[in-house]
Design a protein around this nucleic acid. Structure first.
Lengths: 342, 342
DNA sequence: AGGAATCTTGCAAACGTTTGCAAATTTCCC
DNA sequence: GGGAAATTTGCAAACGTTTGCAAGATTCCT
């Protein structure tokens, strides 16, 4: 259609007032015309729209935001609790972020991403919310900031958190039923022949703690032992730590539930190096069902989180809260995906 | 220190004027005090700061942005050219995004992420820039929008693009020397014993085209044939497409240069399924050196891009441009990482 | 044709900061 | 102690939009 935007004097028309002058109307009318309000004459509107198009005019969002007291921007914040370094590049969070971007875009919102280190900045959440730059906030991962989030939740409605659901908590959370996931994983390990289990991963973050607890449920019920092998997530350290664990617990375990597919993949490499056959000598179950789970050798049996559904849930609940509704949390069911590692 | 923010009447003090009233000074003074200007008496400043802290006051960024004509926000936009679906979850871009978030945070900027589909929205770049919401923009990937970006570059300084550098282009770009990378890959394949090469990946995007061109350089010089096996990036289709390619070209090739580690990993799976031994029957080289490259079986030989350095370069150049400087493009050297697939 | 009902428009006051300018206060020096 | 210099404050005008209110223009009806 109008591919003639190369001949326009860019920047001539910067404000709605400039445009109004050219069109011979008042700024108010221009504003209404561009906003598509019904109060303006069709003829006038068309003229204004034409001029706007011709000059490539866009109303200033800052000014608009200030006046309307809303910005059309949703804040997405990733608190880096323990493993400060580059947890943000964690595959799972990044994938979730991708889906979030999709969903928010579809709903007409922009996404402001912020990475915070709560330890050096206790005030991270209030700062973000109080900035006036965002209409609502999505927190990706509770990390070790559960209390801080609870504090804020009482006074600030438009916030939704990705993470673990705890009985009686006050903030609205979307997440997988980690405990159930842990149960599925342990059941599978045992069904595949394991009788001495291990949980590989940091047990302090809530999500992981719940996964471990689920596995413990089953271990207790079936009368098999389970031990936790604490491991950091950062890929540099994780490799060595896993190798060390495998050394320490040599023949004492025959089934590993890894807190994450990423850890599971690293574990698989370490197992191969030690010549331990999977799944014959060692059963291994991961968590997440990231793309990598399909590509390891052998392919990973894992507990699937539906990331797309999670993102949709987060956005959906947030929009409802923006509209004033006070929503319940959403707990998504995990799904055991059986491949060849257990 | 002051952990007493639970007893503060949140929201009592919303504006700088409220705060001024309490402190018994004028709004202007409060503004100056909070901004740390030297023009305000130390005593006064301290009083104001104390009150601000006590009430958890934060100046409204929208208003500030409007007045100062700068927002402290950098836009990061990912144009999804061909493979519309979820290219945004592509590992490489996501990793780069993670590093960008780190760098921008360090420099005190926020990051506004936008995902656009140029085909349905020809105006994507102007819209983002003209929104008044961002001080500058980083474009991740030229996709098929080279011309549009060039158009904008003439009139808008604070823009830096991740992508491929072409002789004489007008926009400032940061990226790996893809052609050289392609050469390294092809050389390695041949050195590892390959004599009939293939390039696996879409050859239309500039970066990939350059990688292919580099491989062709070497193939021509060494007198070996090379064929392109066009493949989409979306992980759902890629798997089948690769399998089909392998079927079609059964015995005709013995060395594959994959445009991406992700593709290489998929290719490895497909090769295993067909019982083709790597590297004995087939040599394989990837590109990027993502974490996955270390974990495949066998581990991938690949051409490394220094993503962290790329992010640093992007931010550094952008800041210089924000300061009015007109910077040159930055081309980073690729590095061949030899593992076991070739 | 006259007046009521309906559409369109303009006016001007917000939204919450920042900042140039000038006034008020303090400090300093002889 | 008197005045100049330096420091600290307040005033008020921006920044660019939106919107309630009222005035002006049209339409419609009898």
């Amino acid at each position: 259609m109008s591919t003639d935007n190369e001949r326009t004097p860019r920047g001539t028309v910067r404000t709605i007032t400039d445009l109004a002058r050219i069109a011979g109307v008042s700024p108010g009318t221009v504003s209404r015309a561009l906003a598509g309000k019904s109060l303006v004459n069709t003829k006038t509107r068309e003229k204004i729209e034409a001029i706007a198009r011709e000059h490539g005019f866009r109303p200033n969002q800052m000014a608009s935001g200030l006046r309307r007291q809303k910005t059309g921007v949703i804040g997405v914040v990733i608190p880096l609790g323990h493993d400060t370094r580059q947890q943000i590049s964690d595959s799972f969070f990044m994938t979730l972020l991708g889906y979030l971007a999709d969903e928010l875009t579809r709903e007409g919102y922009d996404l402001m991403l912020r990475r915070v280190v709560p330890e050096t900045d206790a005030d991270w959440l209030d700062r973000f919310i109080g900035s006036g730059m965002i209409d609502g906030v999505i927190v990706i991962g509770q990390s070790d900031q559960f209390d801080r989030i609870e504090d804020v939740a009482d006074g600030y409605l438009p916030m939704v958190v990705w993470g673990n659901h705890t009985e009686g908590q006050r903030h609205c959370v979307v997440g997988t039923d980690n405990r159930l996931g842990g149960r599925l994983a342990a059941e599978r390990l045992i069904a595949a022949g394991a009788s001495r289990l291990a949980f590989l991963g940091d047990t302090k973050p809530m999500e992981f703690a719940a996964r471990y607890a689920g596995a413990q449920d089953i271990a207790a019920r079936m009368g098999v032992p389970i031990v936790a092998l604490p491991t950091h997530l950062s890929p540099d350290h994780a490799g060595e730590e896993i190798a060390r664990h495998l050394g320490d617990h040599a023949g004492n375990i025959d089934g590993i539930f890894a807190a994450t597919d990423t850890l599971a993949a690293l574990c698989l490499t370490a197992l191969r190096e030690r010549g331990i056959a999977v799944p014959d000598d060692m059963r291994l179950v991961g968590f997440d069902d990231l793309p990598i789970a399909r590509q390891t050798v052998p392919p990973l049996t894992t507990v699937r989180q539906d990331i797309a559904a999670g993102a949709r849930g987060l956005v959906d609940l947030l929009l409802r809260r923006l509209a004033g509704e006070s929503t319940e949390s959403l707990v998504l069911p995990p799904n055991l995906v059986i491949r060849q590692s257990a």
